[in-house]
Write a protein that binds this DNA or RNA. Structure first.
Lengths: 119, 119
DNA sequence: CCCGGACATTGATGTCTGTCAACATAGATA
DNA sequence: TATCTATGTTGACAGACATCAATGTCCGGG
């Protein structure tokens, strides 16, 4: 388990490169960024991210999120895990509840990479 | 899947909604945007997009792109098809060659949706 | 100390996807 | 027309993924 290539935060991956349209991505850069986009490339996870962001303080507990979907609790838990492992959501446990929070910097870095033609 | 929901251009999908972090995506919005992200959520396609953008005039012919990868020509053709069908690349045939071009507006819309910096 | 609720993990399953080899098509040229 | 080259299409297959039911874990209250 080579930690070195797996412990990259989204800021290190998405923010590593100049915008897509500015200069070609290297193979390695592309392979680092792709998982981030893959994590967002799911309707449920897209809604999860936007839902979490809409809650007070940009935080939501799993129970609230689970209720917003017509999916089983393990499925939601799985999606949240994906979003957390890619660094798009932060996780904090308070008592019995687990709260997820959007990592704004991560999303901003991704956006800058994709669209930042003028940035 | 009904056809009516598949004929939406990326500008109609990504540009349809306010930024992710601003207001929760509806189920339909999420299902329209996800394919766009899915199209970009592949290392090869990411590099294809950035490569195309880097060529003169933001255009590149398939032969040039194929040479840049260690993949078969049908595979590259497949990826280009995906990117074209989602509206991320424009296609134009000139003589024997086919040129692909980045649709900047599409990428910008996506970026705006994710990062919500520029509204 | 046990029980119930909140969340995660596991194992199974059906579907999607990236890839290639083989074949098809279209345009230029002799 | 015959042929070569550039590109797209098809069929097949292995690996990835979304989902659920069942089970496990952690914690607070009785």
């Amino acid at each position: 388990m080579s930690k070195s290539s797996l412990t990259l935060s989204p800021l290190q991956t998405a923010a590593c490169c100049s915008p897509l349209q500015r200069e070609p991505l290297s193979i390695e850069q592309a392979e680092q960024v792709a998982p981030l986009l893959k994590a967002m490339a799911d309707p449920v996870r897209l809604r999860l991210v936007s839902l979490v962001a809409s809650y007070a303080g940009g935080e939501a507990c799993v129970c609230e999120l689970t209720n917003a979907f017509d999916l089983s609790q393990p499925t939601i838990s799985h999606h949240l895990k994906v979003l957390h492992e890619t660094g798009l959501l932060d996780r904090s446990k308070r008592g019995v509840w687990v709260y997820y929070k959007v990592r704004t910097e991560a999303l901003d870095s991704l956006a800058a990479l994709i669209g930042g033609a003028s940035a």
